[in-house]
Design a protein around this nucleic acid. Structure first.
Ligand SMILES: NC(=O)c1ccc[n+]([C@@H]2O[C@H](COP(=O)([O-])OP(=O)(O)OC[C@H]3O[C@@H](n4cnc5c(N)ncnc54)[C@H](O)[C@@H]3O)[C@@H](O)[C@H]2O)c1
Ligand SMILES: NC(=O)c1ccc[n+]([C@@H]2O[C@H](COP(=O)([O-])OP(=O)(O)OC[C@H]3O[C@@H](n4cnc5c(N)ncnc54)[C@H](O)[C@@H]3O)[C@@H](O)[C@H]2O)c1
Lengths: 218, 218
DNA sequence: ATTTTATCGAGAATTATTTCTCGATTGAAA
DNA sequence: TTTCAATCGAGAAATAATTCTCGATAAAAT
């Protein structure tokens, strides 16, 4: 049932967008939705949408489209967002605080159970109801509590050390917010969350637009 | 000089990663770096790296590679990260607070000059040295101060309203953190920052790994 | 001075992704 | 009942991205 069939990253990146749109439709009482309608709203080719949805195993009906509720369920299942995994967060700073306060994260399959830091002033405190523990205990607690996911929100120059601890404890996956490329064993699943990706696209376009004469501002 | 030549999104997403790596090399005193070396560190094909770097206009020398300092400069210039643009942030909540506290953001071409909120308890306060102003003033201030970039960190169901205000004020680009697809005029540059993209990949892989017998954990 | 080796840059080959085409299906309208 | 219009799903075609190949170049080794 899990036949790890290859799904392109592009598809994987579009699925959450469909999900958000579908949830909106669902709330508004829609029962069926067609790929053409989704495509129109998101400015995507309808065939593209259809091919993407295909990977979730949903089937649509000609002239009608797909049943919204089923489709939401199918995407969530496909992405694994129905199965929430416990996670540890390292670095209870600005960004860590925001993530700890983001309760919707469990809608995306992640539940942060504790935070770790190396700042004595933070250790022992609670952030959004979760304890801040000394970073030295990360490794053993990962092991003991079988935590699968580690979230790194420490400064870039500490990210590798923290990652090593997680790996030593037997973590399965790391979600890294620090702007470095971590050196990890092959079997560790990594996702680098790089704000910079979208900022790269954004600032480049802004620069282009300001230089080009299309707009007369300046 | 700006010849908006088309550069693939994939390339655009890899450039910041090169930049981070190059900065590390630079700090460690490296003067030249080859695409093969970069590729080995980031697990990318060397030709891929070479083609990516080509878009920045840098030229390398056979047997030697690229001059690190020049390359850093070239990537920054290409991405427009040398030209910092003022930005307004709407929604001084958890995430907004983190972004306001992230001073490195100006290394990526963005400088947040003020925040806006609709919560009377927040209005008038300062967050990381920036004033929180009433959301009602967003539109006119965008116009008056010629602010180019708007950052949306309000709840999803308020994102469209806030975006509309920004557009009405004449904003050029929107960096949206809310999980919705905004309906905007064609000429507005948008980047949706979706944590969900990487979470989609992460949780799917975690689910697969736990189901598959490769690892014996349960 | 000559050979060797690593790397660049350009273009070809390969692979992946997106878009197009078309027959089949289904509900609504004539 | 028959026709019509919208949409699905499958496969072909077109487009885009990645990887391979190879001649040129430049530094180091012989
Ligand atoms: N703030 C943002 O909006 C933002 C956005 C994108 C990326 N980031 C990245 O996220 C990371 C954190 O950013 P931030 O703004 O929250 O920084 P921050 O300084 O506010 O927080 C970092 C936290 O990590 C802790 N820490 C430092 N070294 C540690 C170690 N070895 N072990 C455990 N804890 C340690 C510090 O005590 C602090 O609490 C950085 O790498 C930054 O580049 C931040
Ligand atoms: N916290 C996170 O880590 C995180 C991560 C990813 C995405 N997001 C998204 O970012 C957005 C903000 O998340 P958050 O956790 O900071 O929420 P939050 O509730 O802490 O902050 C939202 C802020 O927006 C303000 N606000 C609400 N309506 C407004 C309006 N109409 N005009 C101006 N201000 C308004 C609120 O007063 C509050 O200060 C949400 O859309 C969320 O889905 C948050």
């Amino acid at each position: 049932m899990s036949h790890t069939s290859y799904v392109s990253e592009a598809t994987l990146r579009r699925l959450p967008t469909y999900l958000h749109l579908l949830r909106t439709h669902h709330q508004q009482g829609a029962e069926q939705v067609s790929c053409s309608a989704i495509g129109k709203e998101l400015r995507l080719d309808p065939t593209q949408v259809r091919k993407d949805l295909e990977v979730t195993g949903s089937v649509g009906r000609p002239r009608i489209g797909f049943p919204v509720a089923d489709l939401i369920e199918a995407i969530e299942t496909f992405l694994g967002w129905n199965n929430v995994h416990d996670a540890f967060l390292a670095g209870a700073g600005n960004l860590g605080y925001a993530l700890l306060g983001y309760d919707r994260l469990k809608d995306y399959g992640v539940h942060i159970v504790a935070a770790f830091d190396n700042d004595p002033r933070k250790i022992g405190t609670e952030v959004h109801g979760r304890q801040v523990l000394p970073i030295g205990r990360l490794e053993s607690l990962v092991q003991r509590m079988h935590v699968r996911i580690g979230i790194i929100t420490v400064p870039a120059d500490h990210a590798q050390t923290v990652a090593d601890r997680m790996v030593a404890g037997g973590i399965l996956a790391i979600w890294n917010f620090a702007p470095v490329s971590l050196r990890l064993p092959q079997h560790i699943i990594v996702q680098n969350e790089e704000l910079y990706y979208s900022l790269a696209a954004l600032s480049r376009q802004v620069g282009d637009r300001l230089r080009s004469p299309r707009e007369k501002g300046g």
